[in-house]
């Protein structure tokens, strides 16, 4: 499993949430429910709409980078 700092996630990256849902980030929302120490990754596509909040200083599972293919 490859993880990446939440701060380093970019639009186009493919992530896996704890529940197993995979999402391709199409938008990153700053803050979450009024909490500046959080942000939210959103996939808003024809395939699905899914929101995954994360603490800015945390890590998230990365499945694929937007530009350079598989992580690692």
């Amino acid at each position: 499993m490859t993880t990446v700092s939440v701060r380093d996630v970019r639009v186009g990256d493919r992530l896996r949430a704890r529940d197993g849902t995979e999402l391709t980030v199409t938008r990153i929302d700053e803050g979450f429910l009024g909490r500046p120490e959080m942000l939210a990754f959103v996939e808003d596509s024809a395939l699905q709409w899914f929101k995954l909040p994360a603490p800015i200083d945390g890590e998230v599972e990365l499945l694929e980078r937007a530009s350079s293919g598989k992580p690692g």
Binding site: R18, D19, T21, W49, K51, L52
Partner: peptide, 8 residues
């Protein structure tokens, strides 16, 4: 179930 998969 669209919010972090919390209604699975």
């Amino acid at each position: 179930n669209q919010f972090a998969g919390q209604e699975p």
